[in-house]
Nucleic acid binder design. Structure first.
Lengths: 202, 202
DNA sequence: CGGTAACCACACCGGTCGGTATACTGTCAG
DNA sequence: CTGACAGTATACCGACCGGTGTGGTTACCG
């Protein structure tokens, strides 16, 4: 069993060595400390690069932010591919449960929750160039849930996908905001029960 | 039926007329545009007040932020009281469902989701004076769910409360981040099904 | 009458932020 | 040989930000 919905990730255009360091530094700093808190000077310093180089490569902070989220999205999907490969789910239901199990590993060692949710709140402006990446990431999760549910022959896959997404996002945000350290385990149990009791197409 | 868990809201210390206007302006601006985006000058101008007055009343922007969240928490609880009064739930289960139904009304007309989640992300620093208010609000929700579940004679009220909180927070965040306009209705249906199938103490 | 609290107007501060300008160095392909 | 490209170093900019200081005006209250 594998993921069904096309990720349609624009293949990362090749970066210069300095560009790679900048993106790496921006990724950790933006996630650890927040997008607004981290200035371009701090990123340039952490990447051991001049601000000039940073602007030559990325043009503006906003575009660097967008690059950061696209990069994080790629890392997220690579992570899911590894998780799916090692857990080797046998049924579509197990794929869904593996996605929830993966969440625990994904958040291990971090305390800031979901970088996409955080970015959405920090950027606020709906027309920010990074917004499509954020909404896209969430909607990919939903459509993957729906595709697996449909493949499993479960009734009303749309409604089920909506509910799974709520559990998924709820875990991410409760982990961070409500200081609920076991949020991902609770979500995994809730998802398992939901799938077990959900009606099937006759 | 009524809410069970003490709100323990520090009674709002009386404000001067200008202080009231400042808090009102800060509340709408902070929620609509974000805490970091809105400067003290903008708040003072919106409240038709000098910056001097703002600092005489609230001391610093951070303390104004804390006051904003405490105020929003009071408004939230007053809103819940009204909702409970008008929906007049007959059982503890109905109280829980009324809390979910209330969410739809609470988010009506806004597109920024939960002010507490947003503030938690924007402030980031764990030692910010406003953090206890944020975590407290989420934990109050959880303990209210748990108290109602216990009163209803439902098994494992702690686990049930955790799952209800995930749905609750998931709805708030999916509404904003995933552009899921019907998130609160989905959460309400999920909560209803969850309560209907949850085991009871024998 | 005198004091005090609540305001106004306005000017000012140091710091930080995103972003730009100038000038120079190394490397590599046509 | 010669551009083009990637990079360094450093200085600078205007705008905005949170916050302070001075000085003056009401109005109420003991």
């Amino acid at each position: 069993m594998r993921l069904l919905v096309d990720r349609a990730l624009p293949t990362a255009d090749p970066l210069t060595p300095a560009g790679t360091r900048i993106l790496a530094a921006a990724s950790t700093l933006f996630y650890e400390q927040g997008i607004r808190t981290v200035g371009v000077d701090a990123i340039a310093a952490a990447a051991d690069v001049t601000k000039k180089t940073l602007y030559d490569r990325f043009g503006s902070k906003d575009r660097l932010i967008a690059a950061y989220l696209e990069h994080r999205n790629r890392v997220w999907h690579e992570f899911l591919d590894e998780q799916l490969a090692s857990r080797a789910p046998a049924t579509p239901e197990d794929v869904i449960l593996a996605l929830f199990a993966a969440l625990t590993d994904w958040l291990a060692g971090s305390r800031n929750g979901c970088g996409f949710i955080n970015a959405s709140v920090e950027l606020a402006a709906p027309d920010h160039p990074a917004m499509p990446v954020i909404v896209g990431q969430k909607q990919w999760m939903r459509s993957e849930f729906e595709a697996q549910a449909r493949l499993a022959g479960l009734a009303d896959p749309g409604e089920l996908a909506d509910r799974l997404l709520l559990l998924h996002e709820g875990a991410l945000v409760s982990f961070r905001v409500a200081a609920m350290t076991n949020a991902t385990e609770v979500a995994a149990r809730a998802a398992a029960d939901l799938l077990a009791t959900w009606p099937r197409l006759s």
